[in-house]
Design a binder for these strands. Structure first.
Lengths: 148, 148
DNA sequence: GCAAGGTGCTTGCATTCGGAAATATATCGG
DNA sequence: CCGATATATTTCCGAATGCAAGCACCTTGC
């Protein structure tokens, strides 16, 4: 069991490195976004009011708050993200998804969906992919909201 | 199917970010190694003659060759890794695992195994962990040698 | 009302990483 | 043997990231 757990974790780390390598380049050249940029915007996409606080985003992405600050800065200048204050708490600076951002992230999502389908194109049955998604979902269940 | 593939990929990326966060800190403070350092040394551990070329390591870790050069430099100074030339090809500079390195990576592996077991401690049956490991193994099958 | 501690955000600094270029060596075609 | 191409490694530079510190604001307890 300890061996199996270890194997699962090691393979998960390796698989992620492989996928990130496959996805990053096209995502960057086609949409000008990094993989993490896309994930950030997808979190906003499905959030209530299309907005989330920076610490909330940090938790969902498993990155530090300072990273969120620096990631949002250029996207804000490009008009994909906006900033919104909270009426009750002046500390909060919500990150919002603009209409432009919504279009861009929709296109990025299509690219990701296509690449994802390629990953499982050969030698995978629908049921196997579903099982994998379910099991991984139990790992991420401890986290804030799921994407998709 | 395209939705399921996408879900699986997104969750895989999220799960990795979560696991890396959980593992990195203790691995660094206890053994002075990063997660990637440990993976690099584990690849050497199971390699023939305990040595691999830098490009080979780069492929296995899904990082650039320059990253391998920079990663190995401090570990070499610490006496965990060595350098070995090839008799036939003077371009090759094998990275080797020293006896010191072997002890350190064995300890790091134990830490990783313990943390991996914790991940699946609750709400996971042995069979489920095994299924996850198998499915992930099919993703990494296209890569050079598997760890563990 | 106020002091103490907690939370959200940003900035400075150090570390890590990928890509391009440079160097050295190997291989192949003639 | 020679030139062209390919491969292995390293270095330089720019981009991304975490942590610690600082600032602003909120909340709690008195």
């Amino acid at each position: 069991m300890t061996q199996t757990s270890f194997l699962a974790v090691i393979r998960l780390l390796s698989a992620q490195a492989l996928l990130e390598q496959k996805f990053s380049q096209e995502l960057g050249s086609v949409h000008g976004l990094s993989l993490n940029d896309s994930l950030l915007m997808m979190h906003l996409e499905q959030a209530a009011l299309s907005r989330l606080s920076r610490v909330d985003l940090a938790k969902r992405l498993c990155v530090s708050p300072s990273t969120v600050t620096r990631m949002t800065l250029p996207l804000e200048k490009l008009g994909m993200l906006g900033r919104e204050a909270d009426v009750r708490d002046a500390r909060l600076a919500y990150v919002t998804l603009t209409d432009t951002g919504r279009k861009v992230v929709a296109a990025a999502r299509q690219t990701l969906e296509r690449k994802a389908k390629e990953v499982f194109k050969d030698r995978w049955s629908d049921e196997e992919v579903g099982t994998l998604a379910n099991l991984l979902g139990r790992l991420t269940a401890s986290q804030p909201n799921d994407l998709v």
